[in-house]
């Protein structure tokens, strides 16, 4: 059972990684990674596929053990000592199809050390609060994918964990459920809980995160508060437009374009004047917005990873 908050060792960082390395055979999945995640923050883990996000998370959960380095979770030297105070939603989600939703949520709670009656009550309460009241005694197999993911999220938080790790929590959710997920993540923060989530979708990270951590090929590329990370890059031009965007690529003085069809981000060669670009565009496209601002996370990501291919892949997945 959980110890009372008073007896718990106080900690300022929910998670600290010291020079962690993990190899699978000859493949180095995570290379000499150090990281500090302050208590009460929302931390975004970004990185292309196969970058080492999930491996890092699994080491934090002590599902894997690092080959080198050490991991401190909630002030303890191993997650195993605090397993019951962590919540984990893995990337690939699954439920026991034949179990009833309330049963399965309660089961996850009991596995985390809750006593049976508290877990049962809490499971029903949570499911009802999240709009699944009609499903309490129905089997998981009857639910849609989105509902299933909600049930699993509830299973992750039923025991009110101090540190929640969500691996790709937004994948496969419809806009309504995405909003629910966002609210849930924010509510964790409000209760002074720490949240780590990994994602491919930069917009979600931008919206939610206090801190960003970018990993590529097992190595840390960026790490810090969101505003700092973004201010590190050159300013770019953001436009909203209608018309044939292919013209953007042919503009003189433009180094690179992130074109999303209706809006785009342009980065200029050094010494170019944004006003020249605006003049070039007028008449060729209908410009609805034109501003100069910090680069988007997308651009930060792109520059750090240093290859267009990864971004394309990332966008497709999200």
């Amino acid at each position: 059972m959980e110890t009372s908050p008073l007896t718990r060792p106080t900690y300022t960082d929910a998670l600290v990684l010291h020079n962690v390395t993990k190899r699978f055979g000859k493949f180095v999945a995570v290379n000499d990674l150090s990281l500090k995640i302050p208590k009460g923050s929302i931390y975004g883990f970004l990185g292309p596929n196969g970058a080492g996000k999930t491996t890092t998370i699994r080491m934090v959960m002590s599902i894997f053990y690092p080959d080198e380095g050490s991991i401190e979770v909630l002030g303890h030297s191993s997650a195993e000592q605090v397993k019951d105070r962590l919540g984990y939603l893995p990337e690939e989600k699954g439920l026991y199809k034949k179990m009833k939703t309330a049963e399965i949520v309660a089961y996850f709670g009991k596995l985390k050390g809750m006593d049976a009656s508290t877990a049962n009550l809490k499971a029903r309460e949570l499911l009802t609060r999240y709009g699944l009241g009609e499903w309490l005694d129905k089997r998981c197999e009857a639910m849609s994918k989105g509902m299933g993911q909600k049930v699993q999220l509830l299973g992750t938080m039923i025991h009110d964990p101090e540190l929640v790790i969500l691996d790709e929590p937004f994948s496969g959710l419809d806009p309504v459920n995405m909003e629910v997920m966002r609210d849930t993540i924010r509510s964790f923060k409000q209760n002074d809980r720490t949240v780590i989530f990994s994602t491919h979708v930069m917009a979600q990270a931008e919206e939610l995160c206090d801190f960003i951590f970018l990993i590529h090929k097992g190595q840390k590329v960026l790490d810090g508060p969101l505003s700092e990370v973004r201010s590190g890059g050159d300013h770019g031009i953001k436009i909203d437009y209608d018309g044939d965007g292919s013209i953007l690529h042919r503009l003189p003085g433009v180094e690179r374009v992130n074109d999303a069809g209706k809006h785009a981000e342009l980065f200029l060669e050094p010494g170019r004047d944004p006003q020249d670009i605006l003049r070039e565009l007028v008449g060729k496209l209908t410009i609805r917005r034109f501003d100069i601002s910090e680069p988007s996370l997308h651009e930060v990501f792109f520059r750090a990873v240093g290859g267009h291919q990864h971004v394309v892949e990332t966008e497709v997945r999200s």
Binding site: M61, K83, D84, E92, L95, Y96, L111, K112, Q152
Partner: peptide, 13 residues
């Protein structure tokens, strides 16, 4: 195959 194993492993050894 339905990946529930990972959730379980975050709670039990």
């Amino acid at each position: 195959s339905n990946r529930i194993i990972e959730v379980l492993l975050s709670s039990v050894s």
